[in-house]
Design a protein around this nucleic acid. Structure first.
Length: 476
RNA sequence: CGGGGUGUAGCGCAGUCGGCUAGCGCGCUGCGUUUGGGACGCAGAGGUCGACGGUUCGAGUCCGCCCACCCCGACCA
């Protein structure tokens, strides 16, 4: 850990990730197995993710609320598939106030049941619909194997829960929120994702249909980065969520739920990070710009800091951090902020003050290539412009990488080679849960989601005609 | 739950065949010199060697049991 350099992604991607998360001070291991502490720098990134999503939720008509952490155990058993899916991973509270509880309480693994219960109480008429509520919350799932951000016993997320009068409206809303996630991932996080429906075997416990956004990590493994579920009337029936329609007919609601979690931080790290550390997209980075002042003597310091102050006030709308730490060399600070992934570094030294210039160093392009001097005059426009370039470049780079690692194959031999050594396989697929399970068993690759496809082809596995194309890949 | 690994200073590690005062690097504190790509000198602080039990004149070291964490597999946002 005290080695200056990280392990390279090439030689050990997993170790690279673990050390990076710790050393960049994103998170730390908690005293309880499988739990993590999200450190201030990691949480600041999460806050920016929250802000970007929350803005989009509000724009699509949602309001925020908070539902309780503890759920009566009996609630979890009301929807058949939901129980089966979640019972293995529930944390259960059996005692309270020193007494054995009459009914155990589960710590929410997700909130469909408790929110469904409340919706049943609140919804009477079609005039009450739709109900569009989101909550920012923590949830607990007792996972066997954990990894910082990607899978921990407790994690933070948002879960949206909506109730609608018609099937079509609920189905459209499921799609709308999937689009919101896609837009967020691409335009804020610069994480190119493929949005599509999950196979039946991969769908949410209790859903009619699950949709996901799938991202490709730097080791070409797939990460489910967000999900949107069409719940049909499953939960409405289990929790008695009913309304009277315009014709005075009693009907069950159609509901949806959708979530995106702190796992997304893992997606950002593994999509953009390099051997030098994190590379954070300007739109979400806790600090968009770090200024490293360079000086030797007090006279120089005074001059340099005067310029630094000018820059800070000139960049009032940006998240700027000035590294005022004494006793560290500029070189150390450069490396330190590169590890932390700050998109743009501004160096201000005596020579710059004298020449009326600033040195800009881009995080997405290391070394001399990414370093250039700009005139002090007009930096207020130049700096945001560079940030926009970085944002665009990061997306382009990640998209190129992803596209270069997706291969269309038409037979099982090629398929195995691709998912084992090359990346994702895009194939024509005739739905068959047994075959899907067999492929997963044999190759470790899972069906990520259905591609947006037109036309017809021949299933690579069965040779049957089909109009569906899917992505298979090893996943996190 | 299976397989592998690791527990010695905040972090990373060494500690030989059981031996006397438990060491190294980084970090940390103080002072000075440094500062445009991971600075240096000097002086310091910091340890129930994961826990329990055993063998022994003597245990970080040997034996037993337990615990914790990490990695790889079966499940998952």
């Amino acid at each position: 850990m005290d080695d200056k350099k990280l392990p390279s992604r090439q030689e050990n991607f997993s170790e690279w990730y673990n050390q990076l998360v710790l050393r960049a001070e994103m998170a730390d291991y908690a005293p309880v197995r499988g739990c993590m502490v999200v450190r201030p720098y990691g949480w600041a990134l999460w806050e920016n993710i929250q802000a970007a999503l929350d803005k989009r939720f509000k724009a699509t008509g949602h309001v925020n609320a908070a539902f309780p952490l503890l759920i009566p155990q009996s609630f979890m058993t009301k929807e058949k598939e939901h129980v089966e899916g979640f019972s293995p991973e529930l944390a259960v509270v059996t005692h309270g106030g020193g007494q054995l509880l009459e009914e155990p309480l589960v710590v929410r693994p997700t909130s469909e049941t408790i929110i469904g219960t409340m919706y049943a109480k609140w919804i009477q008429s079609y005039r009450d619909l739709p109900v569009l509520i989101n909550q920012w919350a923590n949830v607990v799932r007792w996972e066997m194997r954990t990894k910082l951000f990607l899978r921990t016993l407790e994690f933070y997320w948002q879960e949206g829960h909506t109730a609608h009068a018609t099937e079509q409206e609920a189905a459209e809303h499921t799609q709308r929120m999937l689009n919101v996630y896609t837009d967020f991932a691409i335009n804020e996080a610069a994480v190119p994702v493929l949005a599509g429906q999950k196979s039946d075997s991969e769908k949410f416990a209790g859903a009619k249909a699950t949709y996901s956004i799938e991202a490709m990590m730097g080791d070409t493994k797939a990460l489910q980065a967000g999900t949107s579920h069409f719940l049909g009337q499953n939960f409405a029936k289990a929790f008695d969520i009913k309304f009277l329609d315009e014709n005075n007919q009693l009907q069950y609601c159609w509901t949806t739920s959708w979530g995106l979690s702190t796992r997304f931080i893992g997606a950002i790290i593994m999509t953009h990070g390099d051997d030098q550390g994190l590379v954070l997209p300007p739109n979400l980075a806790p600090y968009q710009v770090v200024i490293v002042p360079i000086y030797r003597k007090d006279e120089e310091k005074a001059l340099v800091m005067e310029t630094v102050d000018k820059i800070v006030s000139g960049l009032g709308n940006l998240r700027v951090f000035v590294d005022r730490r004494e006793g560290l060399t500029p070189g150390f600070k450069f490396n330190d902020w590169e590890l932390k992934g700050v998109p743009l570094r501004i160096e201000v030294g005596p020579k710059d003050v004298q020449n009326g210039t600033l040195a800009l160093a881009r995080r997405d392009i290391l070394g001399k290539e990414g370093k250039r001097f700009i005139p002090m005059a007009g930096f207020e426009q130049a700096v945001p412009a560079v940030l926009a370039e970085i944002q665009a470049n990061m997306l382009a780079k990640a998209t190129k990488f992803r596209d270069e690692h997706i291969f269309e194959v038409s037979n099982y031999e090629d398929f195995k080679d691709v998912v084992e050594n090359k990346g994702w396989a895009k194939v024509w697929w005739y739905d068959d849960a047994a075959n899907e399970a067999k492929i997963k068993e044999e190759t470790k690759a899972s069906l990520r989601n259905y591609a947006q496809t037109e036309g017809e082809g021949v299933c690579f596995y069965t040779g049957k005609k089909t109009n569906k194309q899917v992505y298979f890949a090893k996943g996190y």
